[in-house]
Simulated scan of single mutants.
Amino acid sequence: MDGKKTRLYEEHKNLGAKIVNYAGWEMPVQYEGLVQEHNAVRNEAGLFDVSHMGNISVKGKDALPFLDYVMTNDISKLNEHQIVYTFMCYPEGGVVEDLLVYKTNDEEFNLIVNAANIDKDWDWINEQKKDFDVELENLSPETAIIAIQGPKAQEILQKLTETKLDDVKFFYFKDDVEIDGVKTKMISRTGYTGENGFEIYLTNDDVVKVWNSLLEAGKEEGLKPTGLGCRDTLRFEAMLPLYGQELSKDISPLEAGLKFFVKLNKESDFIGKKALQAQADGGLERTLVGFELLGRGIPREGYEVYKNGEKIGHVTTGYMSPTLNKNIGNALIKISEKELGNEIDIMIRKKPVKAKIISKNFLKNK
């Protein structure tokens, strides 16, 4: 392998991680095992290296109107130190990226973007900049990010900081928090697992110390190092989309069932609004549904979906859910077939396997 390495690469190897190439990075897919790590996050806590994610700074007099122009969500409604989930869309309504926008103030924001899309996103926002008075900076190479997630995440992190973590509300962040004597760039109550937790942004030089301090502090609580394998099963169970599967240039936020994050009635115009408005006004032909497999097999991304011998769509994500112990998935299908309880066929190894459409809200108690 010759991918890029985060500063924690040697720590992962020392912990016995299985390393895979993901979006050009050599990343841990699992340590002890996907199911054990998944269950640790659901029941105790897990620690993820997500330093491969991108961080783009947007500053300047027009930072707020610029972001409202390129984002589907209403950036003008954010409080200082609040975070919002949003999309950047193409004029045709497909998705450039799904991301988090962190607001420091009206003239200073950070965009946290997917590792696989950093270069594309950087090019896109630079192309849209035009007459806006903004300065863009790609901080990705100098930013390390670790995520501690799970019911015991706050209890563990609180041992290492004097900052009162109860004061950091969901989807808010705090600057310059000290963790075990290390001053971080910021910590946020965010994550990609459906569990309570924090994402910690810091310099490459400080990340190894904080990673090891957290693992030591969380021993009694059952904290485990966790890889990208369970990150995917956790986000999928929690109805969180993955770019390239539930969202893409060819799959709009409305088709993915994420209309809540597209503010068609916000005051400012935004890229893709016209196309998305047309979809909202009755132009949707496909939609994302959840399903449970009734026969044997595991549904995988890309498998075709049929109804009465006619192809009606494809699987976007599918797994044996470690939490529910069932074979479940998401599929993008003809909107006419979306009714709950509707039986469909998933083509697994060229054979149809029965499935039924269920709510995408797989974890009803979360």
Rank of each mutant, 00 (worst) to 15 (best):
K18D: 14
F109W: 10
T323K: 14
L136D: 01
R349T: 05
V41T: 09
K266C: 02
V113H: 00
G33P: 04
I335W: 05
P253I: 13
Y306I: 00
T203A: 13
E108I: 00
M27G: 00
A144C: 10
Y69I: 05
M88P: 01
K356Y: 00
T184F: 04
E237G: 13
I75M: 07
D62R: 07
E107P: 00
V305Q: 02
A116R: 14
D106N: 15
L264D: 07
I112N: 11
L276M: 07
T193S: 15
Q245L: 12
T161F: 12
A115Y: 06
L276P: 03
G295K: 05
N43M: 06
C89I: 06
G302W: 09
M239F: 01
K366W: 09
M27T: 14
A144W: 07
V70N: 02
E221Q: 15
Y85W: 12
I112A: 10
M239C: 03
M27C: 01
M1H: 11
A238M: 03
V84Q: 10
M347N: 12
N138Y: 07
H314P: 00
V58M: 07
L332R: 12
T287N: 10
M239Y: 00
L157H: 08
T287S: 13
I200L: 08
I125H: 04
Y22D: 12
I271N: 00
E246M: 07
G218L: 06
G197C: 10
S57H: 13
L136S: 00
R231L: 15
A63F: 02
A256H: 01
N361R: 14
E246H: 07
P28R: 09
A147E: 14
I118E: 03
A275R: 06
L160V: 08
L293G: 01
G297S: 07
K273H: 10
Y192M: 07
W122H: 05
D180K: 11
D166N: 15
L324R: 06
I358Y: 05
N196K: 11
P352A: 04
K311C: 03
V353D: 01
A217K: 01
S359T: 15
K120E: 11
N14F: 05
V177Y: 05
N55Y: 10
D74H: 08
G197N: 08
P91A: 14
E162S: 13
S140N: 04
P151D: 11
I298G: 00
L223I: 15
N204Y: 02
L264P: 02
D176G: 01
V20C: 04
F236G: 08
A278V: 07
E142S: 14
Y102T: 03
I335T: 08
A115F: 04
K18S: 14
S188V: 04
I200M: 08
K366R: 15
I125N: 02
F362E: 05
D269L: 11
K259S: 15
Y90C: 10
E246D: 15
W122P: 01
V20Q: 06
E339V: 08
F66T: 09
S57A: 14
A278D: 12
A63K: 02
A275S: 15
V29E: 14
I344E: 11
Q154R: 13
F236H: 14
V35T: 14
Q245K: 14
N212M: 05
E339H: 11
V289E: 09
L99N: 06
Y31W: 04
E221M: 05
N39W: 01
D345A: 10
R42H: 02
